[in-house]
Computed example of a mutant assay.
Amino acid sequence: MSSVQRQSSSGSDGSATVDEKKRKRMLSNRESARRSRMKKQKQIDDLTTEITRLEMSNNQVRQTVDARERSYNEIESANNVLRAQAMELTDRLQSLNSVLHIFEEVSGFSVDIPEMHDPLLKPWQRPYPSQPIPASSSMFFI
């Protein structure tokens, strides 16, 4: 074999080796790209699942807040009614005490008129013997 033939055969072997390396690199790149796409798809799926979970949680919180707000509004309305009734009863009691004072002055009889406390000024002080107020935990939670 001549030296030219040896070079060309080794050159073609070198070319085949380069082609084989190129082919392996392409396959490796394709596999890497496939793994990358799968990883990205998994991330998207995980984020989509997280979005769904957070939306459901947000809806539950929103429903709880709405229910508590409705409950608060109902209680506030009932408190307003009770305040109005307390003011009306206080006015009635003042009127009755005035009548008793007039009766005392006109008749000369001594009438024991209890001191009247304003429940709206100091609601924590009870002018009358306290009575237990029945309550249950279900009043506070929905």
Rank of each mutant, 00 (worst) to 15 (best):
E115G: 02
G11P: 01
L82E: 14
K42F: 01
R92S: 05
S32H: 06
R35P: 01
E55S: 10
L54A: 06
E55W: 00
L54V: 07
M26P: 04
V111F: 14
P132S: 08
Q41S: 15
S98C: 00
I133W: 03
A33G: 03
A84Q: 15
G108V: 08
P132D: 08
R70V: 06
Q7I: 08
I133E: 06
K39G: 12
Q85V: 14
F141C: 06
E76K: 12
D46H: 06
K24T: 04
R23S: 02
L89G: 00
R35K: 13
S28G: 08
P127G: 01
A84L: 11
V106A: 05
T90M: 04
Q7M: 07
S3Y: 08
R34P: 00
E31K: 08
S12W: 02
T17P: 00
I142K: 07
R68D: 10
S32K: 11
E31W: 03
L100K: 06
E104K: 11
Q41H: 12
N59T: 09
I102C: 03
E74W: 01
I102E: 05
R92M: 11
S36W: 04
P123E: 03
L93D: 03
L47T: 09
V99G: 02
L96S: 05
Y72K: 12
I51T: 13
E31G: 03
S15V: 01
S98M: 06
K39A: 15
A84C: 07
R6D: 13
T49F: 05
R68H: 12
V81T: 15
L47D: 12
I44Y: 12
Q5V: 10
F141M: 10
M139L: 15
T52E: 13
L93T: 09
T52V: 11
R70E: 07
I133C: 04
L121Y: 02
R92T: 07
R23W: 02
R126S: 15
K40C: 10
Q131H: 00
Q7N: 08
E74T: 09
M139N: 13
M38K: 12
L27E: 10
R30V: 02
T52M: 10
Q125N: 12
T49M: 08
E88W: 02
T49N: 13
V106L: 07
M87H: 07
D13N: 07
I75N: 14
Y72D: 11
S71H: 09
L89Y: 10
S2L: 08
F140K: 05
A67E: 06
S57N: 15
E104G: 01
R53C: 06
Q43P: 03
F109R: 14
S136P: 00
S110H: 13
E31L: 03
E105N: 11
R68S: 11
S36L: 13
S138Q: 13
M56T: 11
T52C: 08
T48L: 10
N58S: 15
S77G: 11
A84N: 15
F109H: 14
N97W: 02
W124R: 06
I51D: 11
T90D: 03
L82T: 13
G11E: 05
A78Q: 15
Q131T: 04
E76T: 05
L27T: 02
E105G: 00
T52S: 15
G14K: 02
L47W: 05
I75M: 14
P127N: 04
M87F: 05
